[in-house]
Design a protein around this nucleic acid. Structure first.
Length: 759
RNA sequence: GAGUCUAUAGCUCAGUUGGUUAGAGCGCUUCAUUGACAUUGAAGAGGUCAGAGGUUCGAGUCCUCUUAGACUCACCA
């Protein structure tokens, strides 16, 4: 045997496991009945973005591997189901950055071509991703791997959309949305980052009163001024009109309780099309909507000519200059406030009215709240239960439409002849961009040409549509049907992941697969808490809505990986540690152990090279302890070697180590059951190094052969206890021992979890 | 604005329902070792557990306040 452990044979060990079938649980013929007796254990992998090479966050799947390996050793039929996510906007954004390097943009391609290009881009990375997870030793069932754009998965997601629609839970509406003009799509509230921005409060004279605003440029779209009815200063103005400067248009003064008398001047300009609060106020008071910024981020024809075709910050400066010149700028104060930014590209969000698809969320949220309150779903750490329910109780309707290409299109079809006001953007046969309403394009371009070069369409909010793909319009019999170009929010798809991957059939639940019957609800969902709302909440709602049952019984949330100084790893900080580099240098086990060692539940995972090196040393310690035991045994005739402990001859040292061993069996089991991985790994480390190596083995050196049964017992049991954490070294040593003494013939991965030693 | 969390050794962090001299890794000091392991062993230095008050026979652990920081959520001009 080598003097030091060599981790280069990890991939051979992995193949040994995989070929043994240990990763692939067998589902019995009568899954529903067998389930009670078998108590299957299942975890669905939080599907990594297929475009994303592994980072330390993925290495945290180690936690799931620990759980899965432990429960497998307990004898439960155990499934860990891996997958990959097309990851909608994330992937398209990365891909567009690539295009930009080549001097191109999404506008240079029709959507079919763009989709194909992104598809190929993802395919390259997907295999890499799988290879990397194997490197980290994850005992996933690769025979059940799923990709989010597989046809059956997408079919099922579309069926869910239809079901929601027929249940009256899907609707279109033209509300204010969070729109990123750079990314070219709307976002849900969750995808908006609020940042404090140091700006100004501009006081602008509107005839007899003065308004204070943080966005002077939007005044061009004002359709009212609001004051508090209790405000004596303005009481008499309510119901009258004033002249909007620069636009020279009469707008009403309205009274609304929501106006804070103390703030600014107590008078607020109302821009219904570009402010969430103003939108609500306009709905309430039946005000006019004037949208002045378009989806491309530039001002449109609804503003006086000189301000047209400009970005908001350009319009702002002009408006400020013009108002100042007219003597209408009363004063400017410094003011800092919260502004929504695109979580993806970091640019300011433009609140804008746009037709979008929504899911009515109340009916879905209620059972999901109940499930948490009644502990059908348990949270670990428990404090996240409150975070979850509070969010769920304040949830709003979910905007599920994204104006991007990468993802399944919403299955709705419009008749162009019935809806001539549909706006179309496409590349004609000469690859020139054409943009306009169908009523103006009809005759000039064939529907075929439009469809082939289609980039996007915007249907009026009241447009007729069908959710079935028909040959002709049920109303006018026209065959000029065109599918919605909006795609689903990626979480709409991944929110159904536990269902789709286990083979639940939305359209006909009785046709669901045996896997679903056997493994649903899954046992644990382990994920980073930053996607608690994005993903965990959505999975819960979909699970309950579609099956009446929760998708997982326990949610185990953990935090991010940081560097030695506690800083989040990021490319810009240059402190990113690539997990694959670490496994090359120190071995996978050292990385896995250092990730969980001494980490408190739900706190950050601190990874430093020092720590990894320390764990590499630990792995090597195990190697050398086994080497010592083997050397001792080499002096004996193999047939005399036995694990049987002669109780009558035990010394104090023997009893001491066996007591300690029993303690560590109990505490490790308990710690694994309660998700105290940090404690478990730390205790095992101490036990093996101090109690076993430093004390007992030193003692054994003076005694010799009589200690062999104890040495073997403690070593074998330790390997089992450590296996979930550091599978490679433990399996390697286990196989070496077996090869040498033939005391058992099994893989450690499939061996049974130890019970207390009786002596 | 609402909520959550954190403060323990030079550094990064453990400390599971309150119970004897508060722990680990790395770092530091001294010594040892050619036979499992220098990826080692032995010994050691180093903390008024952020501050103040309270509950208790007993508080790093529970409660209140103060200070400092982190994060999440949020349509206020």
């Amino acid at each position: 045997m080598d003097k030091a452990y060599n981790s280069s044979q990890e991939s051979e060990i992995y193949e040994l496991w995989q070929n043994s079938g240990a990763f692939t649980p067998i589902v019995p013929k009568n899954p529903k009945q067998a389930k009670l007796k078998d108590n299957p254990y299942s975890i669905i992998l939080p599907l990594p973005n297929a475009n994303d090479p592994m980072h330390m966050g993925h290495a945290l799947f180690t936690i799931q591997d620990i759980l899965v390996r432990y429960h497998r050793m307990l004898g439960q039929p155990t499934l860990w189901l891996p997958g990959g996510d097309h990851a909608g906007i994330e992937t398209q954004f990365v891909f567009e950055k690539r295009l930009a390097k080549e001097g191109k943009s999404r506008f240079d391609f029709d959507r079919q071509t763009l989709y194909k290009m992104i598809w190929d881009f993802v395919e390259e990375n997907r295999k890499l991703n799988q290879f990397q997870m194997k490197k980290l030793g994850f005992s996933m069932d690769w025979t059940r791997y799923h990709y989010s754009l597989e046809e059956p998965i997408v079919e099922n997601v579309l069926a869910t959309f239809k079901k929601l629609y027929s249940d009256g839970l899907v609707y279109r509406d033209e509300k204010i949305v969070n729109y990123c003009t750079f990314c070219g799509t709307a976002f849900s509230n969750l995808e908006v980052d609020h940042k404090t921005v140091a700006s100004h409060l501009w006081y602008i004279k509107y005839g007899p009163l003065t308004v204070a605003t943080t966005r002077p440029e939007t005044m061009l779209g004002d359709t009212a001024v609001a004051v508090n009815p209790k405000d004596k200063r303005y009481k008499d103005l309510i119901g009258k009109t004033i002249t909007l400067p620069l636009v020279n248009k009469e707008i009403p003064v309205i009274g609304d309780d929501s106006i804070d008398i103390e703030f600014g001047t107590g008078a607020v300009k109302v821009t219904p099309s570009h402010s969430l609060e103003d939108y609500d106020m306009a709905k309430k008071h039946n005000l006019e909507f004037v949208r002045i910024f378009d989806y491309d981020g530039k001002s449109n024809n609804n503003v006086p000519e000189k301000y047209r075709g400009l970005f908001p910050n350009q319009v702002r400066q002009m408006v400020i200059d013009d108002l100042t010149a007219l003597g209408l700028m009363e004063k400017i104060e410094d003011y800092s406030h919260e502004v929504g930014h695109c979580y993806r590209c970091g640019r300011p969000i433009e609140p804008i009215t746009a037709p979008q698809w929504y899911v009515k969320i109340d009916k879905l949220a209620k059972p999901a709240i109940e499930a948490a309150k009644t502990s059908q779903i348990k949270f670990f750490p428990t404090r996240f239960k409150k975070t979850y329910t509070t969010w769920m109780e304040n949830i709003r309707d979910w905007n599920i439409s994204r104006q991007i290409v990468w993802g399944p299109r919403i299955p709705a079809w419009y008749c162009l002849d019935c809806n001539p006001d549909i706006k179309l953007n496409f590349l004609d046969k000469n690859k020139e961009v054409v943009s306009g309403f169908y009523k103006d394009l009809k005759g000039k371009y064939s529907v075929e040409e439009i469809k082939n070069g289609l980039q996007s369409l915007v249907a009026p909010v009241d447009a007729d549509f069908t959710v079935d793909h028909l040959d002709h319009c049920p109303k006018c019999k026209s065959t000029s049907l065109i599918q919605e170009t909006d795609t689903f929010d990626t979480w709409f798809l991944s929110g159904q992941w536990p269902l789709s991957t286990l083979g639940f059939n939305t359209a006909n639940s009785s046709k669901s697969s045996p896997d679903f019957d056997y493994f649903y609800p899954t046992t644990v969902m382990d994920t980073l808490w930053d996607i608690l709302f994005f993903w965990v909440a959505r999975m819960t709602m979909f699970g309950l809505y579609l099956t009446g049952n929760v998708p997982f019984k326990t949610v185990h949330l953990h935090s991010k990986v940081t560097d030695a100084k506690g800083q989040k790893m990021s490319k810009s900080k240059g402190n990113v540690v690539n997990p694959l580099d670490v496994t090359e240098k120190y071995g996978t086990d050292a990385l896995r152990m250092s990730l969980v060692y001494g980490i408190a539940p739900a706190s950050d995972f601190v990874v430093s090279e020092d720590k990894i090196r320390a764990q590499r040393n630990f792995v090597n310690k195990i190697w050398n302890a086994s080497r010592f035991v083997e050397m001792l045994i080499d002096r004996l005739n193999p047939s005399k070697i036995s694990l049987d402990i002669d109780k009558s001859k035990l010394t104090d040292a023997d009893k001491n180590i066996l007591d300690k061993l029993n303690q560590i069996i109990i505490s490790t089991t308990k710690n694994l059951e309660t998700y105290h991985f940090g404690q478990a790994s730390e205790d095992l480390y101490q036990f093996f190094w101090k109690d076993f190596c430093d004390v007992y083995i030193e003692n054994a050196k003076d005694r010799g052969e009589e200690t062999i049964p104890i040495l073997l017992t403690v070593l074998e049991t330790s390997l089992k206890l450590l296996h979930p954490f550091i599978p490679f070294i433990t399996e390697t040593v286990y196989q070496n021992l077996q090869g040498k003494f033939n005391f058992k013939k099994e893989l450690l991965i499939s061996s049974s979890w130890p019970n207390e030693i009786k002596y």
